[in-house]
Nucleic acid binder design. Structure first.
Lengths: 253, 253
DNA sequence: CGGTACATTGAGAAATTTCAAAGTTGGTGG
DNA sequence: CCACCAACTTTGAAATTTCTCAATGTACCG
């Protein structure tokens, strides 16, 4: 179940807004219109996207954006998974956020100029590039859009805070469980969980880069979760075995 | 040297704006008008703060705000140091950000309702409470304010990202050095560095809670920095001994 | 059917924590 | 001005977590 019905309502960051009917705009065939920022932009001010809008595709493992480059616009992922990350000169990398279908890549990326992070496609990714100035105008001009954006921005900031708490105060097992819980809850919201299983197309290396541990340790930790009959992560999917216990380990006590 | 001259310019998040002359408003005697968000709000729309504005004082070690409570408004620290933190039930705490004089406590705290973090005064703190709705109006109504706020918000988000990279990929020594560097650079901006020394009123426990290590380890790491003639942190001040080396260790390579 | 990239396991090393004790500092009252 | 107390800092030693290096096993793709 990927789509809500027309005129149903959806929720972003606690803010419920009406789902617009298709109106012939270029995004009409986007299966995720109802769940993303794009759609709210449309609702607020009519025939978005404009001709300046750009739709692109990047194959798996390829970079969508490289740190420091001038960025092409506000990115919204229509389909596929990506990661926002920082690559250090010593070869280490830190994944800052996992970008799932329908996600605005970063609510703080509304200003022209380069960013300190890069973005890489995990799977094949379809995404849209919205011109900065126009997104800003639409946000600033509509009080409803402004409030929605405030909520998105606050939610992202809150997630970053939670992540910092995890990294600073919780051991590897809990950090990894927290990642699985995060993806699980978001997948449940999207109706993407079937038979207690959902997609997680991240390699051990990527899970490690997300959680600030080594791939070897990620492997051991996931082995523990499997051995303890909590969940089985592998082959691009997660099978939940003991949801309550997974939540207990992954959630801040 | 704490004050710029009238009509000098100051910089917030890369955005330079003119410093307003005192005009009889209640904040005129605030020594930090030129360096904070308050001031930009005034510049944008006249006789701020309004009667709804509140000025308060909290003694050292006391909580300014407790997680979950309804918050009283947007907080701007006029004087003193505070920390924004999360207290875990197991007794651990993570400090999310160090709030220095003139700082807006969190650019994502523009919405009514409770937050997941708490705020505690490190020293005696004087601060202002600005009503949420009015701050939002002023930001939304002025394109200049909106852009300033976008920059503030983006800068805060970027700092959170950097912090996550530090926590995930860098060892204790570098994380502690990064904290010292952060405070050093901000103190230099404010002209608060005299004789290669500047205030850092954080205890070992607080430095540990900032950097995600134990107070015992914080002590050892700071001992190393002292023994290696890089800097001497203690008694509420930092003496910089080898600035270049401190920057080298504290900055992401 | 290779082959390449990815996952798993083992063993020892390094970083960090924990527990515990001793040294310092700063403030307060006599 | 001094003694004392409470909180903070420093140091030591052992335990734990996580990393590194290296080898072996497994899955996917052409």
């Amino acid at each position: 179940m990927l789509l809500n019905k027309d005129n149903a309502s959806s929720e972003i960051a606690g803010f419920t807004y009406k789902v617009a009917k298709p109106s012939g705009a270029p995004c009409d065939d986007c299966t995720l219109r109802h769940a993303n920022f794009c759609d709210a932009l449309c609702d607020g001010a009519g025939e978005w996207p404009t001709p300046k809008w750009r739709r692109r595709v990047t194959p798996a493992r390829q970079n969508i954006y490289r740190a420091g480059e001038p960025s092409q616009g506000v990115l919204v992922v229509c389909d596929g998974w990506a990661v926002r990350f920082v690559q250090l000169p010593n070869g280490k990398r830190q994944i800052l956020s996992v970008v799932m279908p329908g996600d605005l890549v970063s609510s703080s990326s509304l200003l022209e100029g380069g960013f300190e992070f890069s973005i890489q496609a995990v799977t094949k990714v379809r995404y849209c590039t919205l011109p900065f100035a126009e997104v800003r105008s639409r946000i600033c001009d509509s009080r409803e859009m402004f409030d929605l954006w405030l909520r998105l921005s606050a939610a992202e900031h809150r997630d970053a805070d939670r992540r910092l708490v995890d990294f600073g105060q919780r051991p590897a097992l809990e950090r990894v469980a927290a990642l699985v819980v995060y993806v699980m809850l978001r997948s449940e919201d999207r109706g993407d969980v079937d038979d207690d299983a959902f997609p997680l197309p991240l390699s051990r290396q990527q899970i490690a880069d997300c959680t600030g541990i080594t791939p070897v340790h990620a492997c051991r930790v996931l082995g523990t979760l499997r051995k303890d009959c909590i969940c089985d992560v592998g082959h691009g999917i997660v099978r939940i075995i003991d949801r309550a216990e997974l939540l207990r380990i992954g959630t801040v006590k």
